[in-house]
Each structure stands twice: as structure tokens, then as C-alpha cells.
């Protein structure tokens, strides 16, 4: 348990993802329009590598004949059977109450000085370390 470093924030720009192995679990970390989210890289359906799927939007429930495309960039489709998951919560789109994938908290911490003898100045939060919390 605990916090695990994934990468520098500058290495995970909006729209990108990183998949890391942490304590024997494969976890995908996503930057969705500047916010960070992490999901278990295993689809609850048949164990597919969920975090390698398409990041896209979805059709909201609608009346027959109507098309309402929403949430572009916030939906993760499993690369096998295409089940849709909300990147921010891990909840499936088709049954958010009962079908979901495990999600993890992600924070950004300032990078520690690497050599205390050298005087450094933190540039911006872009240099922070992305941490996923198990």
C-alpha cells in the first residue's frame, strides 16, 4: 500500500496515459484535460488490458432516433469487447451501480531536491511527480 511514483507531470500531458506495474498490479494513469485519474488495467468482464483501450466519448441515453454525443475524452472503451468506463470513477456506462473497475487516487507532489548542495528553485507544478495511491 502507499504512494507510488509514476512519472513527472510533464511526461503525462492532457490526453495521454501511462501504464505502470505497481505492487503486482497493472494500473493505467490518465490525464483528462489536466486532471489525473488511475484505473486498474484489468477489465472486470474477462480481464482484458482495459487501459490500452480507446479514450473517447459516448452517446448519452436518448429518445429513439436521437443522438447525443458527450464526454469526449472521458470514456475508456475496453480494447476487447468495448465496454465503456468513466475514466474519472471507473464506473461502467451501462451499469454504473454494479459494474466498475477499481480506481485509485492520483496526486502530484513537488519533486524533492536531488542534490541538497545545489540550490534549486521549483519552476512550476509541471515538474511535480505523479503519485498513484494504492
Amino acid at each position: 500500500m502507499g504512494a507510488h511514483a509514476v512519472c513527472r507531470l510533464s511526461e503525462l500531458p492532457p490526453g495521454e496515459r501511462r501504464i505502470v506495474d505497481v505492487e503486482g498490479r497493472s494500473i493505467g494513469v490518465f490525464n483528462v484535460a489536466g486532471e489525473l485519474y488511475a484505473l486498474r488495467n484489468a477489465c472486470p468482464h474477462q480481464g482484458a488490458p482495459l487501459c490500452r483501450g480507446l479514450v473517447t466519448g459516448t452517446m448519452a441515453d436518448s429518445r429513439p432516433g436521437e443522438f447525443d454525443w458527450q464526454r469526449e475524452g472521458e470514456i475508456l472503451r475496453c480494447p476487447w469487447h468495448g465496454w465503456e468506463f468513466d475514466l474519472k470513477s471507473g464506473r461502467s456506462v451501462f451499469n454504473p451501480h454494479r459494474t466498475r473497475v477499481r480506481s485509485y487516487q492520483v496526486t502530484v507532489e513537488p519533486a524533492e531536491d536531488e542534490d541538497p548542495r545545489i540550490e534549486t528553485y521549483p519552476l512550476s507544478v509541471d515538474d511535480g511527480i505523479v503519485l498513484v495511491h494504492l
Partner: peptide
Amino acid sequence: PIHGTRQD
């Protein structure tokens, strides 16, 4: 409509 095969 999206992908007819496993994307991996």
C-alpha cells in the same frame, strides 16, 4: 462501429 477486432 468501433473495432471489429481486439485492439491489442
